[in-house]
């Protein structure tokens, strides 16, 4: 896709600013999912995240002349999405915003994993069962806010540490620490629940549940 290459991206932006506005559709398309996930992580509501994603895209268009190219375009777009999300939380007078900003990485917690003595792999095919996807989404939704956003960008949108750090406005070290804690919390919560999704071994546990 044209807009994932920085040079083509810069060329595309130049042409949009020179009047070829329709090219903006192609420019923003590769960022859509990241924007939505960023906003879902902040707002925790699909309809509101979609509405905020539309407003974000319009703000990106209106402010395109101020993009300096010192970060990746997508990173810049994601920081606009983040501001949009935080602004909406502020308007709602929500306490969630405080928790999004105030939690510190020094916070201590119980990060002992779920202790298992064996693990049977849950294959990706198991996602054909809708309950599994729902279980995973709920687990991520229930993470503390500062961990939720890091997981959504790093593990779901598969952005690298540097881009995640820039988009959220934290250090690369903080991204790694938060991701580690998030994964530990997910393992603790999900590992016992996921066992039922592993294929049964033939001949064993035939009647078991």
């Amino acid at each position: 896709m044209a807009a994932t290459n920085p040079e083509l991206e810069a060329e595309c932006i130049r042409r949009i600013l020179a009047g070829e506005k329709h090219l903006f559709h192609d420019l923003i398309r590769p960022c859509e999912r990241g924007v939505y996930l960023m906003l879902l992580g902040i707002l925790r509501n699909e309809a509101e995240a979609e509405d905020a994603a539309q407003d974000t895209a319009i703000k990106v268009f209106q402010n395109l002349h101020s993009f300096r190219g010192d970060s990746q375009f997508r990173t810049w777009v994601l920081s606009i999405a983040r501001n949009e999300g935080l602004g909406r939380l502020r308007k709602q007078g929500s306490r969630r915003e405080d928790s999004l900003e105030a939690d510190t990485d020094e916070q201590t917690g119980d990060y002992t994993p779920a202790i298992l003595t064996s693990w049977r792999e849950v294959p990706s095919e198991a996602l054909e069962r809708k309950e599994l996807g729902a279980l995973l989404r709920t687990a991520i939704d229930e993470l503390p806010p500062i961990y939720r956003n890091v997981v959504l960008l790093r593990d779901i949108e598969e952005m690298d540490v540097r881009e995640t750090a820039t988009a959220i406005g934290i250090s690369e070290g903080a991204v790694k620490v938060r991701l580690h804690r998030a994964r530990a919390l997910l393992q603790k919560h999900l590992a016992p629940l996921l066992r039922g999704f592993a294929p049964e071994r033939k001949g064993l546990f035939r009647w078991g549940k």
Binding site: W119, E121, V122, L127, I156, L186, Q187, L194
Partner: peptide, 16 residues
């Protein structure tokens, strides 16, 4: 193994 399995599963496009 369980942590790695969870990381792989949540990255699947079907989840989000």
């Amino acid at each position: 193994d369980s942590t790695r399995n969870i990381v792989v599963l949540i990255a699947d496009d079907r989840v989000f």
